[in-house]
Measured scan of single mutants.
Amino acid sequence: MLDDRARMEAAKKEKVEQILAEFQLQEEDLKKVMRRMQKEMDRGLRLETHEEASVKMLPTYVRSTPEGSEVGDFLSLDLGGTNFRVMLVKVGEGEEGQWSVKTKHQMYSIPEDAMTGTAEMLFDYISECISDFLDKHQMKHKKLPLGFTFSFPVRHEDIDKGILLNWTKGFKASGAEGNNVVGLLRDAIKRRGDFEMDVVAMVNDTVATMISCYYEDHQCEVGMIVGTGCNACYMEEMQNVELVEGDEGRMCVNTEWGAFGDSGELDEFLLEYDRLVDESSANPGQQLYEKLIGGKYMGELVRLVLLRLVDENLLFHGEASEQLRTRGAFETRFVSQVESDTGDRKQIYNILSTLGLRPSTTDCDIVRRACESVSTRAAHMCSAGLAGVINRMRESRSEDVMRITVGVDGSVYKLHPSFKERFHASVRRLTPSCEITFIESEEGSGRGAALVSAVACKKACMLGQ
């Protein structure tokens, strides 16, 4: 009897593995994704193909990295998701002549009506938060230079001027797309009239992360975010950046690689679950690469896999709870928690219980395998993109072996128990001629924006502006 049951459990697990095998990517698959990513990057950089390229390769006008001589107080704003952060950054000489960066910050959550109302409502709310922060720190009387981390696709015309191309991540505030974001912020500050600010720089969160990590390690020339969304930036040779005049030196390019796949480059790798996630998203047909990796989508992918296993009578005796059938019910943090389970399955059992399920031991094991399959594919897909960037940098610099540091931020990278190990191992397999160091950014977005502002202020002083 026991043997029969054991055989049935083994057969069930084997069927589960057959279904989950769809998520496995072979090294040849990853090399294919990497080569296609490089081709799209090239198209994004070139003037004649930029418009139709899915990977936009947006110039950021960040050319210099901090040298350690900029000092002063800077205000930093960070808008990239449902939370908005205001930070005071003091850049100065530390002990023994070292450079020191001290920060104080406060988080504000953005109400739904500000995210989806008008641009005026959104930026009025942001300036209200700045006003509140300055009151708390008794700094209303000071006109501070301000660095703005704005983590949406922007076409820069200068370091302090950028046109919002399109909202992502659930934002829909009308009247912002096609307009200068810094102008919208300046107008809102003017409307309030109770404080003055000098907006000197606007950067993407990947750029802010790279600059913040450069402060720790001067070989950091790539910034990457794996959180709600997924994106990367890197220092490109100016001669390859056709959208900006000049051939000397390097400029940081914001790849906006989340949109890779929007022209069909990933079609052969998309599964039924991916198509369902895409169809029910706020932007169907867009940001397809990001939807395979980002935390906004990972939990939902797992939920759809679990429903398939229920329908195949391989999980929960073929019956799903009402909660499990509800879109968004299986949160991405559950994926991390399930994979963090120590082996007694308590954590998995508790999560499934909150979803109205009474799982068996085998159910718990199957749910864990589903989570591992989805998150491992995410790590491997992400590795193909980064390997594409790094191999490109090595080739354009004609280096036999390139040493490089990548600064990384984002909740999936930082909080998932195995993502970074799987990701690092896969990147290294795909970049055999590179020695890569990964560092995690601390308060990256805010500190990085302030350091970019410090560079901009120093330049302005040198130019006598």
Rank of each mutant, 00 (worst) to 15 (best):
D3S: 12
E9Y: 13
A11F: 11
E17Q: 07
Q18L: 09
A21T: 11
Q24T: 11
Q26L: 12
D29T: 10
L30H: 09
V33Y: 01
V33G: 12
Q38L: 11
E40K: 05
E40W: 02
R43Q: 09
R43L: 07
L45G: 01
E48R: 12
E48H: 07
T49C: 06
H50G: 06
E51C: 12
E51M: 06
V55H: 00
M57E: 12
L58K: 04
P59F: 00
T60E: 03
R63H: 13
S64L: 15
T65E: 06
E70G: 09
V71S: 15
V71D: 15
G72W: 03
F74E: 01
L75E: 06
D78T: 10
N83Y: 03
F84I: 05
V86C: 02
K90N: 15
V91R: 09
V91I: 15
G94S: 08
E96C: 12
W99H: 13
V101D: 08
H105G: 13
S109W: 07
L122A: 01
F123Q: 00
F123I: 00
D124F: 01
I126L: 06
E128D: 15
E128S: 12
I130H: 00
M139Y: 10
L144G: 04
L146R: 04
I159K: 00
D160L: 03
D160W: 01
K161G: 03
L165R: 03
N166Y: 13
W167T: 07
K172W: 01
E177T: 08
N179W: 09
V181R: 00
D187F: 03
R191K: 07
R191E: 00
D194R: 03
V199R: 02
V203N: 03
T206I: 01
V207A: 06
C213S: 08
Y214T: 15
D217N: 11
Q219N: 04
T228S: 02
C230W: 00
N231T: 02
A232Y: 03
E236S: 02
E236A: 07
N240I: 08
N240L: 07
D247F: 07
R250T: 09
E256Y: 00
W257D: 01
W257S: 01
G258Y: 00
G261Y: 02
D262H: 08
L266Q: 14
F269R: 07
L270A: 15
L270Q: 12
L271G: 08
D274R: 00
R275H: 09
L276G: 15
D278L: 07
E279H: 14
E279D: 07
S281R: 04
N283D: 05
P284Y: 11
Y289S: 04
M298Y: 05
G299N: 04
L301V: 08
L304S: 08
L306E: 04
L309V: 15
N313G: 11
F316G: 13
G318I: 08
E322A: 11
Q323D: 14
Q323E: 13
T326A: 11
G328R: 11
A329F: 10
F330G: 04
T332M: 13
E339Q: 09
G343E: 06
R345C: 09
Q347P: 14
I348A: 10
N350V: 10
N350G: 08
I351F: 03
I351A: 10
T354Q: 08
S360D: 13
R368S: 09
R368F: 09
E372A: 09
S375E: 06
S375D: 00
T376W: 10
R377S: 04
A378G: 08
C382D: 00
C382W: 00
A387C: 08
G388S: 07
I390C: 13
R394Q: 13
E395Y: 13
S396R: 09
V401F: 09
V408Y: 03
G410E: 05
S411H: 08
S411L: 03
S411R: 14
K414E: 10
K414Y: 09
H416S: 07
E421Q: 12
H424F: 07
E435W: 12
F438D: 03
F438K: 10
F438S: 08
I439A: 11
E440P: 06
G444S: 05
G446C: 07
G448H: 02
A449H: 01
A449W: 00
A450T: 01
A450Y: 00
C457V: 08
C461V: 14
